[in-house]
Amino acid sequence: MAYDYDKSIRPGKLPHIWCPGCGHGIVMKGLIRAMDTCELDRKNTAIVSGIGCASRLPGYLDACTLHTAHGRGAAFATGVKMAKPEMTVICCGGDGDGTAIGGNHFIHACRRNIDMTYVLMNNFIYGMTGGQFSPCTPTGAIASTTPYGNPDQVFDISKLAIGAGATFVARTTAAHPREIDKLIAQGIKHKGMSIIEVLDDCPTTYGRRNKFRSVIDMMKHLKANSVSVKAAPKMTAEQLEGKFLTGVLFEDTEKPEYCEQYANVIKKAQSA
């Protein structure tokens, strides 16, 4: 009955460093379940990350893991996949790591449609460095660098990924744990760039500055404001105001995958 997570975690690594109530632990559990669903061979699975709270995730998992430079998770993961196309590559990161510091690498990995699964944990803030605002911090929210409210507009990561050319884009929240592993498993099985955006809670640097009295408030907020893509067409524009859609937002199985394209280039060059 109880799920055996211990076999997937490096011995002696728990308890992890994340704060009490941080959703990254929920996402890590989802990732472990998804990897088991897809029956991934740990010796043939690379989990790559950049820098940040979310990027600490691969350090706990018993697989081939790579903890790289800030924002460069997608770039290193592309390298791993190009060198060893038979490997399953999973990239993890946060919103600041993926869309601000590594925004360039993120959009170009999407554009190439390389076979990779990017689990992007969007907790609306730079947690590790002390709560600076990120491109995903809601307009008007208080961060340590925006004490009078954030004047910036927000990145919609899923729309950005679709626009940049990713072929599987899904969104869920940390308050929907069963959906996390279902979507990550779909992403792993999908051939091409899969983006799984998981809306997460950061009680320490985001919640306490933004009138969330506890982690429970944040989890309830995520639950109350998410709308399934299947339910959305029946709702009015007013009802959808301020809500985020969850589920599979975009899927394209036609677009060619980058490693295959590149193998064709190698063939052509060798026969020339």
Partner: peptide, 19 residues
């Protein structure tokens, strides 16, 4: 009732529901 919500939502791998 073994709905597993506690086990699924625990971020710290601290609770297990055994049959």
């Amino acid at each position: 009732i073994k709905c597993m919500q506690c086990e699924l939502l625990c971020p710290d791998f601290a609770i297990k529901v055994h049959d």
